[in-house]
């Protein structure tokens, strides 16, 4: 008798299936991919090799040649928006990776080892959350000397607390489960139990948090750049909005509109994707 091949879906296949059936989520993924490709093309100089190029009159309005219009120096607003995308995406990616690493490491150590170590880490993040985020962001960016690196550092160093709390709680719930005891029965050490057995079970929290953190980083970069603490000497959505402050009274709205829409669309995509990821990966929370 031929054995009947019983293929059951793994947890991840199941989650991916749910995610890709969700039309809004698919649209969001496509939008985010589009932004990533634009940022990569701009970073490698394939498109917008020179954003400082004068292509028309000062404050030229949007036309067929220059879709998003021109700025004070006759530079293309579209080119500046794309350069801004590069800044926003790199800040989002690196800052959220940084906070992911810090949050997971501290959270996992606190949750797994408990006791004194846990008390110390809890004290550390309680202290951190006591300082209003905006003050901490401004202070860290200011002190690390303004610019792209400073913004990434500040966002990475402030964004880990929420994830750390969640991971700590989850690891605490998992560490006394039977599969972990089984692992120690066959001789697994602390490191192996934590990294090979427990952490894969909390990956969904990391993914959901990553997509949330990404858009927070993009939004904060815009505000920090607006305050003059962000990137220097190159366009960013925040700097474009700062320029627009004086332009609006002259009826020049396109720089504000371009930067605002560019940011809003990608942040919205991340928001929707975050919600869909939560529904797909954490079915217990569904409908909330």
């Amino acid at each position: 008798m031929a054995a009947v091949e019983q293929q059951s879906k793994s947890l991840w296949q199941h989650a991916m299936g749910t995610l890709f059936r969700d039309k809004m989520a698919v649209v969001s993924i496509i939008i985010i991919l589009f932004y990533v490709i634009m940022a990569a093309l701009s970073a490698t100089g394939i498109i917008v090799a020179d954003w400082t190029e004068e292509v028309g009159p000062s404050y030229g309005s949007p036309s067929m040649d220059n879709w998003f219009g021109l700025d004070m120096f006759g530079r293309s607003v579209l080119a500046k928006t794309i350069k801004g995308t590069e800044v926003a995406m790199s800040v989002g990616l690196i800052a959220s990776l940084l906070s992911l690493v810090i949050g997971v490491t501290l959270g996992a150590i606190a949750g797994y080892f408990g006791g004194r170590v846990d008390e110390f880490i809890v004290w550390f993040y309680t202290t951190f959350t006591s300082i209003p985020n905006i003050m901490l962001l401004v202070a860290i960016t200011f002190i690390s000397g303004k610019g792209l690196k400073a913004v990434i550092l500040a966002l990475g160093l402030t964004g880990w607390v929420g994830l750390c709390r969640l991971i700590r709680g989850e690891v605490m719930r998992h560490k006394d489960r039977e599969y972990v005891h089984a692992a120690s029965a066959i001789g697994a050490g602390n490191y192996r139990k934590l990294v090979r057995h427990i952490l894969p079970n909390v990956t969904h929290i990391m993914i959901i948090n990553f997509s949330l953190q990404f858009q927070i980083a993009i939004k904060s970069e815009v505000i920090l750049s607006y305050l003059g603490l962000g990137v220097q000497g190159r366009p960013s959505w925040g700097i474009m909005i700062d320029d627009a402050k004086l332009e609006l009274a002259r009826g020049v709205w396109w720089q504000l509109a371009a930067a605002t829409f560019a940011m809003a669309i990608v942040v919205l995509a991340f928001n929707i994707l975050g919600d869909s990821l939560r529904d797909a990966l954490d079915p217990k929370l569904k409908g909330k």
């Binding site: 858009q215 815009v222 009274a249 940011m263 809003a264 919205l268 928001n271």
Partner: peptide, 22 residues
């Protein structure tokens, strides 16, 4: 709500000031 949260707070302030004030 999600759409409103996606727009930069700077844009609300700038636009509001320009539109209602100016």
């Amino acid at each position: 709500c999600v759409s409103m949260m996606s727009i930069s707070s700077l844009a609300y302030i700038l636009f509001g000031q320009w539109f209602f004030g100016y």
